[in-house]
Amino acid sequence: MKPLGTSSNASHPSHLLAVMVLKLYGAPHSTATKRAAVVLVEKGVPFEFIVVDTAKLEQKTPEYKAKHPFGQIPLLDDDGFLLYESRAIGRYIAEKYADQGTPLLPPNGDLKKKALFEQAASNEVANFDFFASQIWREYGPKKRAGLEPDQEFIAKLNKDLSAKLDAYEVILSKQKYIAGDELSLIDLFHLPFGANIPTAGADAIATHPNVSRWFKEISDRPSWQALNDGVKSTV
Rank of each mutant, 00 (worst) to 15 (best):
residue 1 M to N: 04
residue 1 M to Q: 01
residue 1 M to L: 07
residue 4 L to Q: 04
residue 5 G to W: 01
residue 5 G to N: 03
residue 7 S to F: 01
residue 8 S to T: 08
residue 9 N to G: 10
residue 13 P to R: 00
residue 13 P to W: 00
residue 15 H to A: 05
residue 18 A to Y: 03
residue 18 A to H: 10
residue 20 M to V: 08
residue 22 L to H: 09
residue 26 G to P: 05
residue 27 A to I: 06
residue 29 H to C: 11
residue 29 H to M: 14
residue 30 S to Y: 03
residue 31 T to A: 14
residue 32 A to R: 02
residue 32 A to G: 03
residue 33 T to L: 03
residue 33 T to N: 08
residue 34 K to C: 07
residue 35 R to C: 12
residue 36 A to L: 06
residue 40 L to W: 02
residue 42 E to V: 04
residue 47 F to R: 09
residue 49 F to M: 13
residue 50 I to Y: 02
residue 54 T to I: 15
residue 60 K to A: 14
residue 60 K to P: 09
residue 64 Y to R: 02
residue 65 K to F: 03
residue 73 I to F: 12
residue 73 I to S: 12
residue 74 P to N: 03
residue 77 D to K: 09
residue 80 G to S: 08
residue 81 F to Y: 15
residue 81 F to E: 12
residue 82 L to F: 08
residue 83 L to Q: 10
residue 86 S to N: 02
residue 86 S to Y: 04
residue 90 G to C: 07
residue 91 R to V: 10
residue 95 E to P: 05
residue 98 A to C: 05
residue 99 D to N: 13
residue 99 D to K: 07
residue 100 Q to V: 10
residue 101 G to R: 04
residue 110 D to M: 13
residue 113 K to E: 15
residue 114 K to N: 15
residue 114 K to M: 15
residue 114 K to L: 15
residue 116 L to H: 14
residue 120 A to K: 10
residue 120 A to V: 12
residue 123 N to Q: 13
residue 124 E to N: 06
residue 128 F to A: 09
residue 132 A to I: 02
residue 132 A to T: 02
residue 139 Y to F: 15
residue 141 P to H: 04
residue 141 P to I: 04
residue 142 K to R: 14
residue 143 K to T: 11
residue 143 K to V: 14
residue 144 R to H: 11
residue 144 R to W: 12
residue 146 G to R: 10
residue 146 G to F: 14
residue 147 L to G: 12
residue 149 P to N: 02
residue 150 D to R: 01
residue 151 Q to G: 08
residue 152 E to D: 14
residue 153 F to N: 09
residue 153 F to K: 12
residue 155 A to W: 00
residue 155 A to T: 05
residue 158 N to I: 03
residue 164 K to I: 06
residue 165 L to P: 07
residue 165 L to F: 13
residue 170 V to F: 12
residue 172 L to E: 02
residue 173 S to Y: 01
residue 176 K to Y: 04
residue 181 D to G: 07
residue 182 E to A: 13
residue 186 I to R: 11
residue 188 L to C: 11
residue 189 F to N: 05
residue 192 P to N: 06
residue 192 P to F: 03
residue 195 A to S: 13
residue 195 A to V: 02
residue 197 I to E: 14
residue 198 P to N: 06
residue 198 P to Y: 07
residue 199 T to G: 09
residue 202 A to H: 00
residue 202 A to C: 14
residue 203 D to N: 11
residue 205 I to R: 06
residue 208 H to W: 01
residue 211 V to H: 12
residue 212 S to W: 01
residue 213 R to K: 13
residue 214 W to A: 07
residue 216 K to G: 10
residue 220 D to Y: 06
residue 220 D to N: 15
residue 223 S to N: 09
residue 224 W to Y: 13
residue 225 Q to C: 01
residue 226 A to P: 05
residue 232 K to P: 08
residue 234 T to D: 11
